[in-house]
């Protein structure tokens, strides 16, 4: 069954997607599966190995389960300072 999650994109991913936040219906069971699904759909250039994921505003491993109502954020390599 499809789950509805909120997905946020930052920096290069936000530009490649053309928006910052969207509601996504997905059958992905893990954050990694969801990123691969969205990467294929939107042509993201960064492989999952270079991205980090946050679920509900905390860093999580790629194996994190995707649950109805979650907020996921995909975070490209950082460059503050």
């Amino acid at each position: 069954m499809k789950k509805s999650v909120r997905v946020s994109y930052f920096a290069i991913l936000r530009e490649q997607r053309g928006l910052g936040t969207e509601q996504v219906a997905t059958e992905a069971s893990t954050a990694a599966e969801l990123y691969e699904e969205l990467k294929t759909r939107h042509g993201f250039t960064l492989p999952g190995t270079r991205i980090r994921v946050a679920v509900n505003d905390d860093f999580q491993p790629w194996s994190a389960e995707v649950r109805e109502g979650d907020s996921l954020a995909f975070l490209p390599p950082v460059a503050g300072g």
């Binding site: 920096a11 290069i12 530009e15 960064l46 975070l75 490209p76 950082v78 460059a79 503050g80 300072g81």
Partner: peptide
């Protein structure tokens, strides 16, 4: 570590997200 990103705008008009 902190999720902050930097986009540089260059004199030649091009741009780049650093580390991406």
């Amino acid at each position: 570590r902190v999720p902050i990103w930097k986009k540089e705008h260059y004199a030649d008009g091009s741009t780049e997200w650093i580390n991406c």
